[in-house]
């Protein structure tokens, strides 16, 4: 905030009395918030870094402050790269996220296109579509757990329609469990993708769409040449949010399958959860958590940089 202020005034010399005074008031006003930020972000980070450099566990019977007794430099970080279970969980997560996000985008974009124009009862449909997003993820998990039970409504309906008993044991079959979980995930998060993409599409100036149409473009061409290029940044942001959120996938799996059958739906978060509460390896988990945060930040940074660079292309040879 203070750097933004300085950018407006070229050099300290030109600062007038009034501007200096208002800067002091600025510090006063933001002081409490900055202190709070220090307490809830900086302090826990330092603790995590500290613990991650040791082999301490709560089983040692010492408080975390004593963790230095088991100081082990970067042993935990090295361990990460030898953790085969971790990498298989990561692979599963990426696989599920890729499919879920692809489906969410396809559905979300289609719906957004329908909702750009006004039609009858649009606000009602709009609210209905957004509902799943409001549901607490754990509740969504519970809903789908019920739906996919052997005697659940999905099996009942299919049985009634086909006339035969239908029970593929959804959550006990490895492949079907994965698709059930993905279904729940898509159900819950398509609305958010829809919302972001709709906002993007609505921001495409109407004049440009009209101009393209008058220049002879049909609806598909308008989409391909005007709308999508113009909302590239929005798409990138939605993609970024969904990918990062997807890597944190936890609630739905925890409730529906606990990562099972076997480890078929065990995601990265679920794996970390098991190491934390099953094995109580807190130092290792700290190191793992920090590494993941770092990796995700890098991915997010790349995405943002990409979006920014597209936003201000320079002409060649100028």
């Amino acid at each position: 905030m203070s750097s933004g202020h300085a950018a407006k005034t070229p050099g300290k010399l030109s600062e007038s009395l009034g501007e200096r005074k208002s800067r002091r008031i600025g510090w006063l006003l933001t002081g409490p918030a900055q202190a709070l930020l220090l307490f809830i972000v900086v302090f826990p980070t330092i603790v995590t870094v500290y613990v991650s450099l040791t082999l301490w566990t709560p089983l040692d019977g010492q408080p975390w402050t004593q963790a230095y007794r088991w100081f082990a430099w970067f042993d935990n970080y090295v361990e990460i790269f030898h953790d085969a279970k971790l990498f298989s969980a990561l692979g599963r997560t990426l696989f599920m996220v890729a499919i879920a996000v692809a489906l969410e985008f396809a559905l979300g974009f289609g719906l957004a296109l329908l909702f750009v124009d006004r039609f009858r009862f649009r606000p009602i449909y709009y609210t209905l579509i957004l509902m799943p997003m409001m549901v607490v993820p754990a509740v969504a998990g519970y809903m789908f757990l019920m739906l996919f039970q052997s005697t659940g409504p999905i099996n009942q309906i299919i049985s009634a329609v086909s006339g035969q008993t239908f029970d593929p044991t959804w959550l006990a079959n490895e492949r079907l469990a994965v698709s059930a979980v993905i279904t729940a995930e898509v159900w819950q998060w398509t609305p958010m993708v829809f919302l972001i993409l709709l906002a993007g599409l609505m921001s495409v100036p109407e004049d440009q769409v009209k101009a393209a149409r008058l220049l002879g473009a049909n609806e598909l061409q308008i989409l391909r040449r005007i709308s999508i290029p113009r909302i590239k940044v929005v798409i990138a942001i939605a993609l970024g949010i969904r990918l990062i959120e997807g890597l944190k996938l936890f609630d739905i799996m925890y409730i529906m399958t606990r990562g099972g059958p076997g480890v078929a739906t065990e995601t990265l978060s679920l794996y970390i959860y098991k190491r934390t509460y099953g094995d109580l390896e807190w130092a290792y988990v700290s190191a793992l958590g920090l590494t993941i945060v770092l990796a995700m930040s890098l991915v997010a940074l790349c995405l943002l940089e990409l979006a920014k660079r597209r936003g201000r292309q320079r002409p060649a040879g100028v």
């Binding site: 100036p205 004049d207 440009q208 009209k210 101009a211 393209a212 149409r213 008058l214 220049l215 002879g216 473009a217 049909n218 040449r225 005007i226 290029p229 113009r230 002409p315």
Partner: peptide, 22 residues
């Protein structure tokens, strides 16, 4: 006849330049 079939040149008041294109 829809607008894109009328074969009309139209210059908007604010030009409606496709700013994402060269």
């Amino acid at each position: 006849l829809p607008a894109n079939k009328r074969g009309i040149g139209f210059v908007f008041q604010n030009y409606a330049i496709f700013t994402h294109l060269s």
